[in-house]
Design a protein around this nucleic acid. Structure first.
Lengths: 153, 153
DNA sequence: GGGTGGTGCTTGAAAGTTCAAATATTCGCC
DNA sequence: GGCGAATATTTGAACTTTCAAGCACCACCC
């Protein structure tokens, strides 16, 4: 019944899991060390910094950044504690909230970015040919699209 | 100073982060739903099941499965609570311990595997050409090798 | 205009992870 | 043969994530 993986596929799967793990842990450790924030916070700051007026509805931010409302809500609470983000009520819909990047938050992002980008460049892009990079990208996108279609959460 | 990412590279990086996230969350959710265990536990059971006598030193298991001794120690404690793994002292080195897969643990693994493999096959391998798969694998391995070299923790 | 259901977001508790410090045992050395 | 350094593993506290309620507000409908 079950269509098991071939040895070949198993090795690819293992390589992908390893990539996953190293990427996640390496970038997280780097940011924690150099900027004192986990990568989840960094992603929030980046996303907000690119948004118009540096603000976004909580739900849109959750979608852009990780997909879980609850996780985002907790994270924004802690970013508020640090003074990097503020919440602001939405005028047109009383249920909604905006997360707004503060100047301090923007400054923290500006301080963190160079080391982070340097790390990513060194670890990922310096070791890939351009062709590999593009293959990787299209394969990754196709897999993600399939998973989104399967679980439209 | 900082060698920023090109737009092209930024898009690849975003795609990789998304892949990372969806793969981790999707597989975790699937296993949690179908087998009541997080993927970290599954990886431990798989690794033990492939080891001689279905047992391994804690440190070797940590290296094979995730890299953190402490995380493994906590995880094995919970697997012991479920009766899926047992600890056994190492005769030749009193500091060392073996993690041993129990029959119940093997049974849990056997029950969980088909749905998990089916999910992986459907989400990942059914959408990749053989060439993409191989490109992905070698790129992933090269990146991981570079990261291991940089941080030999 | 007051239920009824749905949407946007938060909260609290449980589970998992991380980091640093603690414990226990071996090894080398004098 | 006993002292100090190194190794294998665990522990506890702090933090993050997840899951399942919960609260607040909108919108529809009679």
């Amino acid at each position: 019944m079950t269509r098991w993986l071939t040895t070949d596929e198993q090795e690819t799967w293992r390589a992908l899991l390893d990539l996953n793990r190293y990427l996640a842990e390496g970038t997280d450790r780097q940011l924690q060390r150099d900027a004192g924030m986990p990568i989840a916070y960094y992603a929030i700051l980046v996303t907000l910094s690119e948004a118009p007026d540096r603000q976004m509805r909580m739900s849109a931010l959750a979608e852009a950044v990780d997909g879980s409302q609850s996780r985002l809500s907790h994270a924004v609470s802690r970013l508020e504690d640090r003074g990097w983000v503020k919440r602001r009520r939405c005028d047109s819909d009383g249920r909604g909230w905006y997360a707004v990047l503060t100047d301090a938050g923007f400054a923290a992002l500006t301080a963190a970015a160079p080391a982070h980008v340097g790390y990513v460049r060194e670890m990922v892009f310096d070791t890939l040919t351009e062709e590999e990079q593009h293959t990787l990208r299209s394969a990754a996108r196709r897999i993600v699209a399939g998973m989104r279609a399967a679980e439209p959460a």
